[in-house]
């Protein structure tokens, strides 16, 4: 498929008002849309409002400038894959692979998201108002001063934080009573770094081997207050009320979960 940016000249598709860009994505293939976003960012746009997004993939990928991309509609898979810098706000649901291998930036989804949210993520933050699918935060990792954050407003499915090697995941469970535990199973399987905070409790049977449950300490609570504060700033709600629900912290017992597996 040949991509040209001719449609950037069509005011029904692309309008520009100083640093503020409007795109109507209703008839755009993802390659056209992403080429436009990249070009507009290089031309100095700081805010892009994209209307009528219908499943276009990889939005925000390959853009390395701190632009704000506001999506009206439903972005396709791998929103912000390998993303390095932008802020993306989605006004409704997102699909699979939000923030796949993301490096920096911020993604805010005012709906729910599909599977493998924040897979391999190593920096930046993702806030999801609703729930997420399976294997969220799988293989999320941190290094040096990079510490990724994923905050989920409602629930998640199984294998949350599988192979997690760093970063912070918060599941607020706002869709249920804090007394009712998280139902997802195999949470933190193979986890060897980072921390997961759950509002409300979890049945130990639903945890992966090698995960330890503890009461959050003051440093944890401070981090939680900051993240809950950001969550409420994006989506509304009372931070104090959410904090009052009480949290548990999940952390790995070892940085070397398979250290004794082999005969040397």
């Amino acid at each position: 498929m040949k991509i040209d940016l001719e449609r950037m000249g069509d005011p029904r598709v692309f309008r520009r008002d100083n640093g503020h860009v409007h795109i109507d994505a209703s008839e755009l293939h993802y390659r056209e849309l992403n080429a436009m976003i990249k070009q507009a960012a290089l031309d100095g746009a700081t805010l892009m409002e994209i209307e009528n997004v219908y499943g276009q993939r990889y939005i925000g990928s390959g853009v390395r400038l701190p632009v704000r991309i506001e999506i009206r509609g439903i972005p396709g898979n791998d929103l912000g894959a390998f993303m390095d810098g932008p802020e993306i706000v989605v006004d409704r649901n997102a699909q699979d692979g939000v923030g796949n291998t993301m490096n920096s930036g911020n993604i805010v989804v005012h709906g729910r998201a599909g599977d493998i949210v924040a897979m391999g993520m190593r920096g930046g933050s993702i806030f999801i108002r609703g729930s997420v699918g399976y294997r969220a935060a799988i293989h999320m990792k941190e290094y040096m001063k990079h510490r990724p954050v994923l905050v989920i407003g409602e629930s998640c499915q199984d294998f949350l934080g599988e192979y997690m090697a760093g970063g912070v995941v918060v599941v607020l469970g706002l869709d249920r009573d804090p007394g009712q535990g998280l139902r997802a199973r195999h949470v933190g399987t193979g986890m060897h770094g980072g921390a997961i905070y759950l509002r409300g409790d979890i049945d130990p049977h639903n945890l992966g081997k090698g995960v330890e449950v503890s009461e959050p300490e003051e440093a944890d609570l401070e981090k939680l207050r900051e993240l809950v504060g950001r969550f409420c700033a994006y989506f509304g709600g009372d931070p104090a009320e959410i904090m009052a629900g009480g949290f548990v912290k999940l952390a790995p017992r070892s940085k070397r979960p398979y250290g004794s597996l082999y005969a040397y």
């Binding site: 897979m119 293989h139 192979y163 940085k255 250290g259």
Partner: peptide, 14 residues
């Protein structure tokens, strides 16, 4: 992270 096992899962989970 320094000092942690670097685990490559068998499949790509995406």
């Amino acid at each position: 992270p320094e000092g942690s096992d670097a685990i490559s899962p068998a499949p790509h989970h995406d």
